[in-house]
Design a protein around this nucleic acid. Structure first.
Lengths: 359, 359
DNA sequence: TTGAAAGCGCTAACAT
DNA sequence: ATGTTAGCGCTTTCAA
């Protein structure tokens, strides 16, 4: 016991921080005044403010976040929930997504002076426990959920029940009404991709979808259908094959589509597009001459393959940033849930679709 | 003003949480007893404990983290500093590293009931401000620094000055003495790689290094030198070319080494090894027949190229996990700084080195 | 424009 | 084994 005490005081020896009280004394004012200064409130005489500011600067004072959070009943911390195990992240072959999302979130959060608590699911842990741990943590004012293939419904239900502010990054399953999210318009994007291929004269346009329990996969398929119909082509469901967003599934899906004699393919992810590319080249065919490809995401990968990939670019960082400011708006009462945002995407034309004349 | 108040109370309507006091009342005990129960302390009669536990369960009570942190002067939160901009992360072509590290950290932290605050540098912000923001945040008990190519010396100096617990993931520059870190034994690893090539009969073994201001790059080069000498080969510095860990630099480095007539190459990263592979194949030569390659990292990439890459596997997640428990040990006074750990690596033999007979 | 004082929800002596 | 009490460092009325 006494040992613990000694250890603690020794540890703190060089670390001991000032508190409001001490700053107030040094500056010859009350704690309330110092509090007003650090919170940038009005009704502080400029002279007084300067005096206090000088002491703060000299002493390198920084307020104790826990005390502030306790008094304000607000922590200025938001949580980031990544409901995906590392295995999933790597298997999806899209390791870029999460770093970009995290960067987008922290960026936006920090510029509003919020810190971010990171929650990642790990494979050894069951989801229930994971979500419970998050829910028990009272150090957050709100939650950002990076949607995944796994089902975070328990978490969402709980959050709704206790009326805790949260925003989902990506569109949630259709069954969820009235929750806030920021996603992209997958239907419109896929439609544009397919329409583009049709405009280039392709007649038998196939598609390799994502896992169909996934909302984004569903919407991209819907966009494909609409694109086909709007282009005046016959809709042929034998040209639709279910993939899983991964390279392998793109490769295998393409093998199937080759048998169907397609002259173009819309892959619901760049990674699958690359898999498809391999299958085509292995079959001795050429892209885009024999078969045109359009992918989805615009990963760095898209420019690293030959031919470079025509693809749909989605604004990942922007999505994350908007979700973050939305959450903060919700927390601070400046916005009312649900806030639902769908961001536009952009068709990036490179060499795999044949729109560009070579040489 | 009154509007704000209304908004607040409305918002809290369904959210209002119990506090210790109320739990104590419901259970007919004092706050101290409830506190003992939730902190798993001894000296609580089993019967009492159960009674309290039941109320907690019924009411879904969870302690307020801010209040607890204030009283304990400990937050049970550690910070993760990623002093790399997204641009750097992507340019390094190793997007796998960070997700794995983050997973390793959160994993270990959560199992000790610590939460993790994530700090990422963004390109629009200067490093100084970034570090200052981190240092001002008083919501953390310690810091994990994911070492990078950029210089985090300001941060490290400050942390040392205020005696704030921190651990670096990867070996810091040699100029830092007495700080805690968890890295891998780069020298031994590189030496093993080179020795392996020599054992296979290779005589002119070149190397493509990382950026030489980087400690890991330096150590891998040192390991290369030692490996050459230990194998009884003449050390020839014209066989050393500086790369930058990126694919392009591997490609270009290999072009140079081809002119030097090497029969093997040790690339200080898998990504560079892949670049080198391309250069070799472009020159019409074969791997491993004409030139053998050993890489470093064992990324998923290593098994996705043809031939698959013989490489040094480093335990990234383990490194992160050990750094985390070390930090927590430091925070809780169970360990004394500096704690310096070097983890062993493992040579993974695949097809690019020629050790395996094909077919 | 400033100060006094009462919390915020919890922990940790100290008593009992 | 349990209760009492005094903080932890800040914010926020309220009064001056």
């Amino acid at each position: 016991m006494s040992r613990n005490l000694r250890t603690l005081s020794e540890k703190d020896a060089g670390t001991k921080r000032m508190n409001l009280e001490q700053v107030a004394q040094k500056a010859g004012v009350s704690r309330a005044t110092v509090s007003r200064v650090i919170n940038d409130e009005q009704y502080v005489r400029e002279e007084t403010r300067q005096k206090v500011l000088r002491v703060i600067e000299e002493e390198g004072y920084a307020p104790n976040a826990a005390a502030r959070a306790l008094a304000k009943r607000q922590t200025e911390v938001i949580g980031i929930v990544v409901p995906d195990t590392l295995e999933n992240i790597l298997v999806n072959d899209n390791p870029y997504y999460y770093p970009i999302v995290l960067q987008g979130i922290t960026n936006a959060a920090h510029s509003d002076d919020y810190a971010t608590l990171l929650w990642m699911l790990h494979s050894s842990e069951d989801e229930r426990r994971y979500y419970q741990r998050i829910l028990k943590n009272r150090l957050m004012d709100g939650l950002l959920i990076v949607a995944s293939v796994t089902t975070e419904s328990f978490l969402i239900d709980e959050l709704q029940r206790i009326k805790f502010p949260f925003v989902i990054i990506s569109q949630p399953p259709r069954s969820y009404e009235g929750i806030s999210y920021v996603g992209i318009d997958n239907v419109a994007a896929a439609q544009e991709a397919v329409h583009h291929l049709a405009q280039l004269g392709r007649k038998r346009i196939g598609t390799i979808t994502g896992k169909m329990h996934n909302r984004e996969a569903q919407d991209r398929l819907r966009g494909y259908e609409q694109g086909i119909k709007l282009s005046g082509l016959p809709y042929d469901e034998t040209l639709v094959v279910e993939g899983a967003f991964s390279r392998d599934s793109g490769y295998n899906g393409m093998k199937y589509l080759l048998d169907q004699g397609v002259d173009a393919v819309f892959a619901a992810s760049d990674v699958m597009a690359v898999g498809a590319l391999e299958a085509i080249q292995e079959a001795g065919l050429h892209v885009p001459e024999d078969i045109a490809i359009v992918g989805f995401d615009d990963l760095p990968l898209a420019t690293q393959v030959k031919p470079t990939l025509t693809t749909i670019r989605q604004p990942i960082a922007k999505k994350a940033a908007i979700a973050t400011s939305t959450l903060i708006g919700l927390i601070e009462g400046r916005m009312q849930a649900p806030v639902q945002v769908l961001l536009p995407t952009q068709l990036v034309i490179r060499n795999s679709c044949g729109a560009k004349q070579k040489g």
